[in-house]
Design a protein around this nucleic acid. Structure first.
Lengths: 256, 256
DNA sequence: CGCGCATTTGAGGACTGTCAACTTCCGTGG
DNA sequence: CCACGGAAGTTGACAGTCCTCAAATGCGCG
């Protein structure tokens, strides 16, 4: 692992407050591995022997049933994945596949579990990370169960805009069929949803989406701090802070 | 709190391995409170000051958006809820409402967080609990995104049968409109799904459902250990053990 | 007994998935 | 550099799923 990578991993929320010794032990048994695009890193049902840390590239986590597949999340550096399975030493519930060439740090699960027993601050950080992941999924379920596909897309676009902070243009970082699956629809319906959002000033050219009328888009999307995590990075804390601002905006919401 | 309750709380996975001192301190500042049916315990967006432990009764956790509501989970004794918000000292993402008269132990969030810092074994237990909750939600999302409503109902019935182990009869522990929301459909469609399952030998009389042909129901439901948590109680470990048996059954699955 | 609420049933419409054909984009190889 | 092939994306037609509204039925409790 390069020194710059070490620093980036050290800065992960999970390690930030850990004792130096904890970090040293955990990363001592770890190794960096490079994978080509479209590689299955892990199959659901497999035992999980490592905590994965994505250093570079993109990874998709997905689930399968009855010959159908759905994307559950898409990861970008720096982030860890399948922490929950590592903590429980259990089989994976999601499969992991690289979307591009990736560089991944693999930390033995044993090392993580023993580190948690020895270093309470580290265990606390793991708990906080898991709690943040849990809340991310709660948001996800509310999004799926309470909104239709066009509303989900609209909120996705607004959330991306908040993250990238790149003016009125949003760049899609993955293929549309991957995005469609992430949002719980078919590629065909994603196209149609984009078309439907033209009325709200949305126009698409390849992977560049321009939001011509953010106010109109927000009126349709009705973003909600209790569903849409608008924190630039690293979880909950920031999102909670603006809750009151959002709520005032929500008070004028109308029935569907 | 009655002595019998103390024992039951002590037996919770979260406290089972905690130091005696940890348990004593945490429960010292706690108090038991009784609530009538249909009481809002917590509104989404509210700061969370307590870890709740349901000792008796039923509690529903739900989410709201744009004047629509969806049930996210239904709790029965003994279980804790909103642990994730307590760990992060964040606002609740779900509202909690009693479905019947309830008896609830409320442990100050501060006590939980300081206990985690002081007792690594307790922190480890909290991590394991959160990891189990996280995996429960992953299963939930796969269930919603990969199955239609009748398939979800069929799997729900099979899962209930496995939990209660009560022959070929399954008892619905909550009103059908609550169950419908939990399964992500309207009450009307729950009725129709029950009707559709008559072909698979399912018949309903009030809150008693008899499964007349489990094999046929399983053929439709295609239960999967990576979606349906069939552990009698307390999470993942048992479910993982039978994975191989289930998988052999799945290998002959056909495209939808 | 009657009221209120949950549940069921029916009709219609909105939303979403599937299939097929077509267009666009992009990387490869000539 | 260009032509080509294959995959991704789009569009249209159609079907299945699901929601909404309305009305009827059933159930429990005062």
């Amino acid at each position: 692992m390069r020194a710059s990578d070490t620093d980036r991993v050290r800065a992960l929320p999970i390690f930030a407050e850990a004792a130096p010794e904890t970090f040293r032990v955990a990363t001592a048994g770890a190794h960096v591995q490079r994978f080509p695009a479209a590689t299955m890193l892990l199959l659901e049902g497999d035992p999980v022997d490592f905590l994965y840390v994505l250093l570079d590239g993109q990874v998709e986590l997905h689930g399968t049933w009855n010959d159908h597949e759905t994307v559950l999340t898409i990861l970008r550096p720096i982030s860890t994945f399948i922490l929950a399975a590592v903590v429980l030493d259990a089989a994976a519930l999601m499969s992991a596949r690289t979307l591009e060439r990736c560089e991944i740090l693999m930390i033995p699960g044993d090392a993580i579990r023993t580190a948690m027993r020895l270093d309470p601050r580290f265990a606390m950080s793991v708990s906080r990370d898991l709690a943040g992941c849990y809340r991310g999924l709660v948001r996800n379920i509310k999004n799926i169960k309470l909104r239709n596909s066009t509303e989900r897309l609209a909120n996705y676009l607004l959330a991306q805009r908040a993250i990238d902070a790149s003016g009125s243009a949003v760049i899609l970082h993955h293929e549309k069929r991957i995005l469609a699956s992430l949002l719980g629809m078919t590629p065909e319906n994603l196209s149609r949803s984009f078309a439907a959002l033209q009325k709200q000033g949305v126009s698409v050219q390849g992977s560049v989406v321009t939001l011509g009328n953010v106010a109109a888009l927000e009126q349709l999307a009705k973003p909600d701090p209790l569903i849409d995590n608008n924190a630039p990075r690293g979880g909950d804390i920031i999102a909670e802070a603006d809750a009151e601002i959002w709520l005032s905006e929500l008070s004028r919401a109308k029935p569907r």
